[in-house]
Amino acid sequence: MFLNQFLFLAAILFCIGVYGVLTRKNGVLVLMSIELILNAVNINLVAFGAFHQHLSGQVFALFVIAVAAAEVGVGLAIVLLIYRNRRSINVAEANILKG
């Protein structure tokens, strides 16, 4: 097995996630795309950890998973707040502040 097959998988998922955050208008879908990106990073970390026979990679990935959970929770809270005030979770409509 090559190290690169994992890294490439991660890179592809990362870019798909980027595509998702750049094209999606729905707040929840943007959050989902973010999860995709974070998972891509985790694959990288775990793969390097396995490659170097070194524990830190996996540990780092665990930390990222926990942070991702917190981020999604916070993100959803904010999206819900916006939904309550606007009746919409379309992030494109949030453009009062500009200039």
Partner: peptide, 17 residues
Amino acid sequence: LRGMQSGQVRQYATLMF
């Protein structure tokens, strides 16, 4: 330059990435 600050998150994210 100020005009580039459109207020759209998508545009900000596009700029960032």
